[in-house]
Amino acid sequence: MTATTIPVTERRLPAFGGFSLGMIALELRRLLRNKRTVVFSVIMPPAFFLLFGSSGDYQTERVGDGNVTAYVLISMAVYGAMLATTSGGAMVSIERAAGWSRQLRLTPLKPAAYVAIKLTLAMIIGAVSVLAVNVVGIFFGADMPVGTWIACAVLAWVCALVFAAFGLFMGYLLPSENVMQILGPGLAILSFAGGLFVPLDTLGHTFATVAKFTPVYGVGELARYPLTHDGDVWVAILNVVVWTALFALGAMWRFRRDTARV
């Protein structure tokens, strides 16, 4: 209409609903600026590994194809990936509280692209977390065949998708700016319940049975399987699939309510 603005015929919508590398790069930079996220996902899991897994006894005691230190290493990689992806997904809670989600609705960014970006970010910091634990493990006595090592790390990372969905669900469910203060301890409890910190067979039969229904169990069992060749793989896979579906459905349900809330 005026000489100064762009004619409507030359205005274009962004590709992929606004999902772009540029946005991911900016979001990643902001994520790394948040010290709590960095501590939770990059510093705490390797520290836990050193604390609980690197003692001399563990380095000599064997489990499957490796030593106990390797076993603890995988568990801590799973724990790190879990914390990282959950906090990645839970970013939406902070953004909703700040009114940022509303601001984004004044841009061409499609809601589905926004969710895809959050999941991508969650998986990126999940990968960083798994990598951090594994690098520390190389120098502090973990021992298993290279192929096993890689398989375990990849499984720990991929299965953390459950928790990216969980974080997203919680992010939409809890409108709190301190959502990770609730989710952090929650994840620790789930990790105990799912046999990530302490092997389930040391905790009694009833507890071990209940544990199989908790969301951390499947991820832990699967990630350790290349090392231990032990446990019920199909139960673990079923556990991961069902929990991912439940959390994803929950996130979708809240997400729809959020975008339709007008």
């Binding site: 900016l26 902001r30 600026r33 948040n34 902070i94 953004e95 700040a98 009114g99 940022w100 509303r102 601001q103």
Partner: peptide, 8 residues
């Protein structure tokens, strides 16, 4: 008001 992220 709102609509801004303070860590950008």
């Amino acid at each position: 008001s709102g609509g801004l992220l303070k860590d950008y």
